[in-house]
Design a protein around this nucleic acid. Sequence first.
DNA 1: TCCGGTTTTCGCCTGCGAGTCGAAAACCTC
DNA 2: GAGGTTTTCGACTCGCAGGCGAAAACCGGA
Lengths: 243, 243
Amino acid sequence: MTTCKSTPSGPLRDAAGVAKYRHEALAAVLQVRLVPDEQPRLCVLARQRRRDPYAGLWALPSGPVEVDESIEASVRRHLTDTVGVTALSHLEQLETLSTPGRDPFDRTIATAHLGLLPWTAEVDLPEHAAWHCIDDLPAMAFDHDGVVVRAVERMRAKLSYTNLGFALAPAEFTMAQLRDAYAAALGHEVSATNLQRVLKRRGQLEATGGVHAPGSAGGRPGTVFRFARAELEVTDPFATLRP
Amino acid sequence: MTTCKSTPSGPLRDAAGVAKYRHEALAAVLQVRLVPDEQPRLCVLARQRRRDPYAGLWALPSGPVEVDESIEASVRRHLTDTVGVTALSHLEQLETLSTPGRDPFDRTIATAHLGLLPWTAEVDLPEHAAWHCIDDLPAMAFDHDGVVVRAVERMRAKLSYTNLGFALAPAEFTMAQLRDAYAAALGHEVSATNLQRVLKRRGQLEATGGVHAPGSAGGRPGTVFRFARAELEVTDPFATLRP
DNA sequence: TCCGGTTTTCGCCTGCGAGTCGAAAACCTC
DNA sequence: GAGGTTTTCGACTCGCAGGCGAAAACCGGA
């Protein structure tokens, strides 16, 4: 229904003279990645740009929103198409970036998202895509470095006041595994004792009944747990000044 | 630099065939409003629509983003121009709405914001604009009722784990006034004792030295306080599982 | 000036949940 | 069976929110 009145040199405008913008769906996909004989580390998925602007720099997976989809659907579509990510355990909106000049070639608006993968998910990465550890990030294109920082902040905050832990872990796990995953995600040591007590008190943790075989070094076998619910729920945002 | 290739019947697209969208800057402006001889109440600013779609229904203040401004600057501009709000004590981004069909006349994307005014701010409302109490909202246009709900949720959550209280109150106030404002904002009774102790422990509260004259019914005069800082700062988002 | 009524302020106590520590349990290899 | 390793559980401490009652500071009226 919209007709075009813009001149080739100016911004695109509709019949009423209102400016229109290209809208990018953008995602910082985080995963606790296990490396044999090392502590697991928190990483983010990025692609190396082939074209200007910022050719050669790393950028978060993104793509334009189509007319018949919501931004969230667009994020999922582009993640599947460009980096082969289909098994997100969590996806939420982070922020919308709109500073004029953030894309030197066009006036674009982008909505950034936080995506999470369980540590067991294996992604077949295409060429020019790679995982980068959070504490050793390369230079990134556009405003994407800020997006990664805020994605990690959001995930860390929600790990403490929601049951977001389910998105880091697979269906079943031992407390030792979960402790290591939390430690990698939060960036500091975590006590398995305290973690188990906190999650149990909140009713997020259930024992499956099974036990996990001990490692080669021996030791008591760990009981296998699962998260009671796989949807995000807030524990108590009104920690203070409650009724 | 973008040229127009769209046909009059299809969506607007640039030279590369990428769809472009009208982007709306949207704000839910909340204020604790004082009515003489009544408890103060939390209200939201809305305008009654004159044109279709949703003519006659109430809608949050909004307007299209211009090419040379960020979304946040656009929100401030439209709030000034359409409802005369210039003294926001706080403004933050809430969420971006993009469901196809959310605007039956056009494919638009809107970024919703949370705005706060101190209870002393008096706004000269134009015709067709009014304050609506949160617990007695009229039917709203588009997806704006959901925006109001999430704006209130966000504010209530941040009142407990940030110093957002500074945005509700004027520069100076007594604990009794602040208690009433918190009670209206949170929707439940608040103890002045506990409120003062919590805010003091966090270093958010300072005594100015002055005292407020007692009311007509007498009583001990209240000491005058101010917030130590007027920028948002998080108290402790990592309440649990800290290092 | 004294007294009841009102509002604010302060100190003490309680209770919940996070964090720490150490001992016991359960497994390995030698 | 002994020694080493890992997991699990209980007991304790501590910080902070929340509740209660007494004391402080003001009013108006007798």
